[in-house]
Amino acid sequence: MDKRNIFPISADSKVTHELEPRELGTCEKERRKFISQVLGGSLMLMALPTLASTLFKQGMSEAEKQRIKKEYLEKYCPPGYDPFAHQWAYGIDAYKCIGCNQCMTACKLENGLPGHPSINNRWIERYTKLAGDPHVHVDSCTEPANIAVSDPDNFIYRFDDRYAEADVEYSFFVPKMCNHCADPVCTQVCPKGATFQTPDGAVLVDEDRCIGCLYCKQACPYGARYLRPIPARPDGVTRVAGKCTWCWHRITKGQEPACVDICPKKALIFGDLNDPNSDISLWFKEHGRELLVLKGDMGTHPSVKYIGINEEVR
């Protein structure tokens, strides 16, 4: 065999023997056997996940659960805060919203977001129906006309007054944000468990473990996620998924989220559903029949509920 000739095509093969063990499969019977083996193998592969799931599923005793809960509370929860004792919820009154974008500014400054209008935890949309036009027009902070009257470098966002002269049938503002779903898609798809739901209902991101694959951004039906271009705080990390945390660092200290605190119209309501006298419990009770969620057909069960929106909002 020529040592240098390591690139020969089959025609160059010099040695021929009677024995060709590799070509035993040429006969029809062999081929059928091979195909049935492939089918059998695929059945085995299909059985694997079932097997694996039964192996990984472990029953846990009640005492063990209590121990884990105690350790969780003592070691990992902020002092004085019991996430099991709260069930946070958020209400948005679109009747009251005046589109001042103060919540967006407050959110960005509170959570260390860049001024860029394409990176948001929350934003406001304007739905406008013009007389004689079957389509509803929607715009928000990324609309070039709105950017023109805004000042993103100074965290100031405004809506332009484009419908001042138009014959408007109806028009309203809708604040949008992460819905902190009870059955979040983002936590379902995160390959690593870097985004998760706390016992109090907030959906958070562990920026020390996020790999920045953005599968969660693809999965979120509400477009509430983004890739962080700047760190949230001096010791933070870039290029990880970011999202609304309901200002978890505030609510664990007994404060409201920055957006709720800043809203000059009290259009945003936040509170604990476990407390029957909290703002949100009273508000839910008052508006029980009007409460709506966004994209209910996704089966995500949002914790953010709206009043004053119509079917065009999604």
Partner: peptide, 14 residues
């Protein structure tokens, strides 16, 4: 973009 898209969507992730 044309029409309306969520603000965060204007940055294509993948």
């Amino acid at each position: 973009f044309v029409g309306y898209v969520y603000p965060n969507e204007t940055v294509i992730a993948w």
